[in-house]
Amino acid sequence: MSAAKVNGGMSDVEKTLKVAAMGDLHVREDNSDSYRELFGEISKEADVLVLAGDLTDLGKPKEAELLAQDLKACSIPVVGVLGNHDYECGAHEEVAHILRDAGMKVLDGQSVEIDGVGFVGVKGFAGGFGRRMLGYFGEPAMKQFVNETMNETLRLENAMRQVRAKRSMVILHYAPVVDTIESEPLEIYPFLGSSRLAETIDRFKVNAIVHGHAHRGRFEGRTPGGQPVYNVAKHIEKPTGKPYAILDI
Score class of each variant (00 low, 15 high):
148 E>N: 09
154 L>T: 12
14 E>R: 13
126 A>E: 13
23 G>V: 07
142 M>P: 00
237 E>L: 09
179 D>A: 02
219 F>S: 00
143 K>A: 02
201 I>K: 03
110 Q>S: 10
217 G>L: 01
235 H>E: 15
166 K>M: 01
102 A>V: 12
80 G>K: 10
147 N>Y: 09
131 R>M: 08
152 E>S: 14
79 V>S: 10
228 P>G: 08
241 G>T: 11
192 L>M: 14
107 L>F: 13
108 D>G: 06
132 R>Q: 11
236 I>P: 01
238 K>L: 15
135 G>Y: 02
239 P>L: 13
176 P>S: 06
30 D>F: 15
224 P>R: 00
216 R>S: 14
66 L>F: 13
85 H>R: 09
107 L>C: 07
22 M>F: 13
53 G>A: 06
44 K>C: 02
92 H>S: 14
105 K>R: 11
185 P>I: 12
76 I>T: 13
113 E>P: 04
198 A>Q: 09
50 V>R: 01
227 Q>Y: 06
114 I>A: 02
103 G>E: 05
236 I>L: 07
76 I>Q: 11
201 I>W: 08
46 A>L: 08
132 R>K: 13
155 R>V: 07
134 L>V: 13
136 Y>V: 00
242 K>M: 15
65 E>Y: 08
89 C>A: 14
100 R>P: 07
189 Y>L: 05
240 T>R: 11
186 L>R: 10
55 L>R: 02
14 E>C: 06
168 S>M: 03
123 K>L: 07
8 G>M: 11
69 Q>E: 15
7 N>P: 00
78 V>Y: 06
63 E>C: 10
95 V>R: 05
227 Q>A: 04
219 F>D: 00
125 F>L: 02
77 P>T: 07
72 K>C: 11
170 V>Y: 01
213 H>E: 00
98 I>S: 02
35 Y>H: 14
222 R>E: 11
151 N>R: 13
14 E>D: 13
89 C>K: 04
16 T>Q: 05
145 F>R: 02
157 E>M: 03
58 L>D: 10
48 V>T: 02
131 R>Y: 06
75 S>C: 05
46 A>W: 05
8 G>Y: 12
84 N>D: 14
197 L>F: 09
6 V>P: 03
214 A>V: 01
125 F>I: 01
160 M>K: 00
229 V>S: 10
149 T>Y: 02
71 L>G: 05
133 M>T: 08
118 G>L: 07
116 G>F: 05
25 L>G: 04
246 I>G: 12
248 D>A: 07
93 E>V: 11
80 G>H: 13
